[in-house]
Amino acid sequence: MPILLILFIFIPLGEIFLLIEIGQVIGALATIALCLLTAGLGAALLRQQGLQTLARARQNLDRGMAPAMELLEGVALLVGGALLLTPGFVTDSLGLICLVPPTRHALVRLALARLEVQYGPAGPPPGAHNSSRGHTPDVIEGEFERRDDDHPDQR
Rank of each mutant, 00 (worst) to 15 (best):
L72V: 02
V79H: 05
L78A: 15
V100W: 06
L61G: 03
A66H: 08
L78N: 06
L94M: 14
L71G: 15
P87E: 09
E70Y: 01
V79F: 15
L77Q: 05
V75K: 08
L96T: 04
T91D: 06
A66M: 11
D62W: 07
V90R: 02
E70M: 09
C98V: 11
T86P: 00
S93P: 00
L77Y: 10
P67G: 08
P67L: 04
L94Y: 01
T91L: 04
C98R: 05
G81D: 11
L85R: 07
S93V: 12
A68Q: 09
R63N: 11
A82G: 15
M69Q: 12
L61C: 11
M69A: 13
G74C: 09
L61I: 14
L77I: 14
T86E: 09
A82N: 11
D92G: 13
L94I: 12
L84E: 10
P87I: 11
L61H: 06
V100P: 03
T86A: 13
V75G: 12
A82K: 03
D62M: 10
P67M: 03
V79D: 04
V75Y: 13
A68C: 03
L61D: 01
T91G: 06
A82L: 15
M69W: 09
G88N: 08
G95M: 02
A68V: 12
L77V: 12
L85E: 09
L77C: 08
V100K: 09
L72S: 08
L99I: 12
E70L: 02
I97D: 08
R63W: 00
A66W: 03
L71A: 14
I97W: 02
C98P: 10
D62I: 10
L77D: 03
M65K: 15
C98E: 07
P67Q: 07
L83F: 13
A76N: 06
M65P: 00
S93I: 07
M65G: 06
M69L: 13
G88M: 06
P101Y: 03
R63V: 01
C98T: 11
L94D: 03
V90D: 00
A82C: 14
L96S: 10
E73I: 07
M69Y: 14
G74Y: 01
M69C: 05
G80V: 05
P101W: 04
R63Y: 01
R63P: 01
R63S: 10
T86C: 06
P67W: 01
M65V: 07
V75M: 15
V90Y: 00
A82T: 15
G88I: 07
G80N: 10
V90P: 00
L72N: 06
G74V: 04
D92K: 03
R63K: 14
L99M: 13
G95L: 02
S93H: 01
E73Y: 00
L96P: 00
L61T: 13
D62P: 00
M69I: 11
A66T: 11
G74Q: 04
L72K: 01
A66R: 11
L83A: 14
D92I: 00
L99S: 05
L71F: 13
L94S: 04
L84P: 01
L96C: 08
V100H: 05
V90A: 08
G64F: 00
P67I: 02
M65W: 04
L96D: 02
V100A: 12
L72M: 14
M65S: 14
G81L: 02
G95A: 08
V75S: 15
S93C: 11
A68W: 09
E70C: 07
L83W: 06
A66I: 05
R63D: 12
